[in-house]
Simulated scan of single mutants.
Amino acid sequence: MEKIEAFRELAGPYERELLLHCYRVMGSLTDAEDLLQETMIAAWRGLPGFEGRSSLRTWLYRIATNRCLNALRDRRRRLPREPVPPFEPPAPTRWGEVTWLQPYPDVLLDGLPASAPGPDARLELKESVALAFVAALQRMPPRQAATLILRDVLGFTGPETAEMLGTTETAVKGALQRARAATPAPPVEQPDDGVAGRFAEAFTRGDVDAVVALLTDDVWLSMPPAPHEYQGRDAVREFLARSFAYARSSLTRVGANRQPAFAAERDGPAGIIVLTLRGDRIAALTRFHDTALAARF
Rank of each mutant, 00 (worst) to 15 (best):
P142F: 03
W100E: 13
A132D: 15
I63F: 10
Q144F: 00
A135D: 10
D209C: 05
V98Y: 01
A245L: 05
L176I: 06
Q144W: 00
T204C: 12
T291Q: 13
G111I: 10
P119Q: 05
V212D: 04
I282A: 06
Q231S: 11
P184N: 02
T93M: 03
Y230D: 00
L36C: 11
R281P: 00
A283G: 09
E229K: 01
Q231Y: 05
E189T: 14
A185F: 00
P80H: 04
Q102R: 08
R76M: 14
G268M: 06
R205L: 11
R73P: 07
M140V: 03
D207V: 03
A263E: 15
A121L: 10
L47Q: 10
P159Q: 02
F239K: 00
D209L: 06
A32H: 01
L19M: 10
S128A: 15
R94C: 10
P142D: 01
T99K: 09
L60G: 07
A6C: 06
M26D: 13
D106M: 05
T58Q: 15
E5N: 14
T99G: 08
A210Y: 04
E160P: 07
A264R: 06
Q102A: 04
E265I: 08
D120N: 14
L251Q: 02
Y23N: 14
G46V: 04
L154A: 11
T58I: 02
L101Q: 09
G206T: 07
L112F: 07
R94G: 05
D290R: 11
P85Y: 02
E169M: 05
G111K: 01
S128R: 15
T167A: 00
R77Q: 15
